[in-house]
Computed example of a mutant assay.
Amino acid sequence: MLSWLGKMASACWRPVRRYARMSKDDDGGGEDDTLLWCRDLEKHSCGEVSFAVVQANEVIEDHSQVETGRDSTFVGVYDGHGGPDASRFICDHLFLHLIRLAQQNGAISEDILRSAFSATEDGFLSLVRRSCGIKPLIASIGSCCLVGIIWKGTLYVANLGDSRAVIGYERRSNKIVAEQLTRDHNASMEEVRQELRSLHPDDSHIVVMKNGVWRIKGIIQVSRSIGDAYLKRPEFSLDPSFPRFHLPEPLRRPVLTAEPSLYSRTLQPNDKFLIFASDGLWEHMTNQQAVEIVYNNPRAGIARRLIKTALSEAARKREMRYDDLKKIEKGVRRFFHDDITVVVIFIDHKLLEKKISVPELSIRGFVDAVGPSNFNILQGINTNAKSVT
């Protein structure tokens, strides 16, 4: 039976395998992982980018994109939960909202990013409102949302949830150092639990330890997201017939928020690269381990290498080899690891001062959809950096 399922999965994934089989692996050998997609190396406005995604769920819940322009680069990592609807919606709408707002305001800024997140949240909640009559569980679907923009030498990062952006920078000793640019909005963090308790002093069940894991209302770990409408507005409360999402008492005010954490900085000569990744990567390696892998290995395929290192660690924890893990079909793989998305952005500072010609591409992770990017219409807009928040 398992042999038949394996053959069936192999046949279904042949179109993806065509893209996943890039250069021969030098870090594991053996047959390629048919659930692993990558673009080993592409150019962007101030360097190169490596991009990889591996699927674990029956339907992939990680959606992602890289947009390249003449003097700008956009990265989006959207880690869905409960289904792919929210992460796919973000991938289809957030960047377009950003472009529209930047044109209207003549700038890229933290405020523009915040407004793009808000417009995306409003749009998805409108979709929930229209759909919940025929698909009530859409009210329980949500997504983390991590965005990075390099715009004329300035980096902007916005984040909801527990995906993470990490920068690798060199010290004078030529050692690479990891700096986490985002804050994990996850109830496993003491500061997040304290924040929730201070916002809900009259709710003794705002965070609950369940099966050894801290969860908000005993249900969800992330405290900020796009979607999860039933935890934000009473009109989206789910019927008790869905016990997994049943709240012990009516929702009096939102317990989750779509307000992103924001960060900006002017890139410095010792800033070497950025890693944007969903939490599936960080479950299996530290920030410092990740930057050392990037720093000490060739650029081409480095995002794929990070994912394979994480998968090897996930396999080791279950006392098996990665060669055995990668034979397990989607859906069942979720018992071993999460969907994982990794984007590595290399920063070549000499290019920041030059006007170089790079392909203006829009790349969607995993589905391998490539087309022209709308970033070219932003040429001429001035930088309008805000202070770090």
Rank of each mutant, 00 (worst) to 15 (best):
R197S: 09
Q65E: 14
P201Q: 12
E179P: 00
H185Q: 10
S312K: 05
G82M: 07
K43D: 11
D239R: 04
R130Q: 14
S10K: 13
K326V: 08
G153Q: 05
Q289M: 12
E42W: 07
S198Y: 09
G380D: 02
R334T: 01
G69T: 09
W13C: 02
A315T: 01
V147A: 07
L325V: 03
M1G: 05
P201I: 14
T309N: 10
K350T: 09
R183S: 12
S387N: 11
A303N: 05
I141W: 00
D122M: 14
G142K: 10
R265E: 10
A300Y: 02
D27C: 07
V342M: 09
P84L: 11
R333F: 00
H337S: 11
E48R: 10
S198V: 04
E195C: 11
F74H: 04
M209P: 01
K152Q: 13
D92K: 15
V177E: 04
R88S: 09
G6V: 05
V332L: 07
I219C: 02
R129E: 15
Q379R: 15
R100W: 06
K330F: 05
K24S: 05
G168I: 10
E249K: 14
G148C: 15
L196I: 13
L378H: 01
Q288H: 06
T286H: 03
E67C: 14
F51Q: 00
F366G: 00
L36M: 12
R321L: 04
D184A: 09
S115V: 07
H97S: 10
L2G: 07
C46Y: 11
W37T: 01
K308Y: 04
S3C: 04
V77Y: 03
L231Y: 07
S373A: 10
L311N: 03
A20C: 09
K24R: 12
S198H: 10
G148M: 15
A310L: 06
P15H: 07
H63C: 11
Y156V: 12
H185W: 05
P269T: 08
L281Q: 04
L5Y: 04
V53S: 03
V367E: 01
K210Y: 05
L251C: 11
Q221W: 02
N57A: 08
G28I: 07
V332D: 01
L199F: 06
L36W: 02
Q289K: 09
T34R: 05
S241H: 00
A20H: 07
N382L: 15
P298Y: 07
A165K: 06
A385H: 01
R171M: 10
L94T: 06
E360M: 11
V208T: 12
H97N: 12
P298N: 10
S163L: 11
L238R: 02
D111F: 03
N296H: 12
F245P: 03
D32V: 10
S126H: 14
L2R: 00
P84A: 15
E353Q: 13
R299D: 04
F236G: 04
C46V: 13
L160G: 02
D279L: 12
K326T: 01
I141N: 04
Q288C: 07
W282L: 12
L146Y: 05
F242E: 01
S198R: 13
S64C: 13
T286D: 02
I134H: 06
T389S: 12
N105T: 05
G82L: 06
V207K: 03
F346T: 03
T383Q: 04
G161F: 09
D122L: 15
Y322K: 02
E42R: 15
M1N: 00
R305M: 13
V53G: 00
